[in-house]
Nucleic acid binder design. Structure first.
Lengths: 338, 338
DNA sequence: TTTGCGCATGTAAGCGCTTACACTCAAGTT
DNA sequence: AACTTGAGTGTAAGCGCTTACATGCGCAAA
């Protein structure tokens, strides 16, 4: 505990300005309820004392914090960066602040951080994906915390969401890949346990695979966490198999970047020897060589819409709706027709 | 404003357990001061009510939040990710929570967020770099907020810091580049205004350049913000000059990745036609092709040491010291001897 | 048995704000 | 002249915790 210097409080300001604390509070929060003369007087006192309101006291007295919390699975790569950025911009414009935590893809940790943010007085929450313990949703409901789920869309749900259909999107890409002549697909998926987006994407590939009459057992799949290095490692494994894949479909762009890097190290020419696809269309995707064919996700739009929905929920206008955004295939050089 | 359901408070728990609020509080914070029997009784009540302490009330009453704040310039790329991760891990282990904001490289915004975090009751702050308005430091001092500056080291300063000498490190790299025969260097720097790390790195190159007897006017420099795309753009400009550079030295790895990508698009062979260097050694650095020669920064160590120093400051052991960490040149394929 | 002491617990005073309600007073109504 | 009205302000009751201090108790020492 460091010594606490004298920090000015509302009372100090009230004394200095010769008014009551209520008036000072009004000057700070509802200017229109105060006469111009008093306003000036109070603001001068605020200035000269260097007063800043104590956030905790305010949140406690007002029973709302104008803060919304977001828990994302990771900050380590850029997957969520752009969307979160847009989310925050929109929030700030509406007078809300954002608190971000990262759950490291661990449901337990996420649950803990949800409680933490709620305990901190978050007025609302942004969560990624929909798959979590029912208990968590119950907790949120009991506390009456408005919540929006992003990066996923669940039309049939009781939850507000804004996102896209990971499964359909990946299926679309897989259909395209197969249509282009590929019959040996190697899959590098994110770890599906506890990650519904990864699970849905993998399911999308499998849907397409089976729809084209192939057997699930003939589709090699490696699950690994979203790190560039892991993409590289998984690729090594995949190309050691008896049946060499003609294309590697990755659960996201980060894995794909690792694949491309390792492929070159091992002497493969992408896409002539082997094709590669990603998902997300992060900035990196068009700067790797060859540029990555991937599924483009409208990150900024997603963040913006999420913010709008959440604020709507908090301020009691707007219902729990699901926004389904459109994604499309971004064809680039890493995928070749056979 | 959504309706507020009945959220259990300390009082509710006290009633349910048939003890006073003080005792419940003790059970939660200083178990050893309470008899085992009461502890059990209280904990059962906590469980059955699903009680979670109100953070704001706690922070307010206890005058400390066990929260520390960090403000980083950007979350958009991985520059700070690893260091921050280590920082957080260490904090958690010591019972502290981390709040992160991003200032988008804008000093004004940073100043605002500092106040915001302080108003939220942060017990301490982690800031990046040292260059900021004296007013900000005064504010921090007046409020008695322990602060550690990271990604920089300022031995002569009154501030605690943990980092490395950006200028010396970059100079070391530039010396190496020149020693390897390069005489035409093109520089792509971060925007130095408001970013001391970028400024120091640029200065490091200039130091070396002049020390080798060249004129500053002959060193082309482009400043641009740290985005992969901007690296690409800057490269285009640089190679349009009359005197073609034989090497592009970049302010960080992100810019360098952009350069490598664009160089290939324009038909350059890196490193045979042109060499490229970066700074930071983020994960991407060894996965671009060719792998990037860069300055390796011990991000995790920096985060860990920063956490230790800060907690030391907060808990009144430990002085304001400067930790200077060692960096080294990571030689990879993107830099070639002429 | 009495005294003293320390442990476990309770009492109650805040922490710095917001806000319902009460009050004052000048201007407008009838 | 008496009465509304409402804008501007003040009073004071919390918000949900922590903690200094007071209290009560059992037990060892005298």
């Amino acid at each position: 505990m460091h010594e606490t210097p004298d920090i000015p409080t509302l009372d100090d300001v009230a004394n200095a300005a010769g008014v009551s604390t209520a008036t000072v509070s009004r000057c700070l929060n509802e200017k229109q309820k105060v006469s111009p003369k008093t306003l000036t007087k109070v603001m001068e006192a605020v200035e000269s004392l260097g007063y800043t309101p104590n956030f905790n006291a305010r949140a406690m007295a007002a029973k709302q914090s104008h803060t919304i919390g977001a828990i994302i699975p990771t900050m380590e790569n850029a997957i969520f960066a752009r969307g979160l950025q847009a989310f925050q911009e929109k929030l700030l414009a509406q007078g809300y602040n954002l608190l971000v935590s990262s759950s490291a893809y661990q449901p337990k940790l996420e649950a803990q951080q949800i409680r933490e943010l709620v305990a901190r007085g978050a007025d609302g929450l942004l969560l990624i994906g929909y798959e979590r313990d029912e208990e968590v949703y119950e907790y949120l409901a009991r506390r009456g915390i408005p919540t929006v789920l992003a990066w996923a869309s669940i039309p049939d749900s009781e939850h507000a969401s804004v996102g896209f259909d990971n499964r359909a999107a990946m299926r679309m890409l897989a259909d395209k890949v197969i249509e282009m002549g590929h019959r040996q697909i190697g899959v590098i998926s994110g770890i599906v346990d506890g990650n519904d987006r990864a699970a849905q994407r993998l399911a999308g590939i499998q849907d397409s695979w089976q729809a084209h009459g192939f057997r699930l057992g003939d589709l090699p799949v490696i699950q690994t966490s979203y790190e560039i290095e892991n993409g590289a490692l998984a690729f090594e494994q995949l190309v050691e198999a008896d049946v060499k894949p003609t294309v590697i479909m990755c659960g996201n762009d980060v894995l794909a970047a690792g694949v491309i890097s390792k492929a070159r190290d091992l002497g493969f020419d992408v896409p002539n020897d082997i094709s590669v696809t990603g998902f997300d269309d992060i900035e990196l995707a068009k700067h790797v060589f060859p540029a990555l064919t991937t599924v483009h996700v409208p990150h900024r739009q997603m963040g913006r819409v999420a913010a709008e929905s959440l604020i709507g929920l908090i301020e009691n206008r707007g219902e729990k709706v699901s926004h389904q955004l459109d994604v499309f295939i971004e064809m680039r050089a890493s995928l070749r027709r056979l």
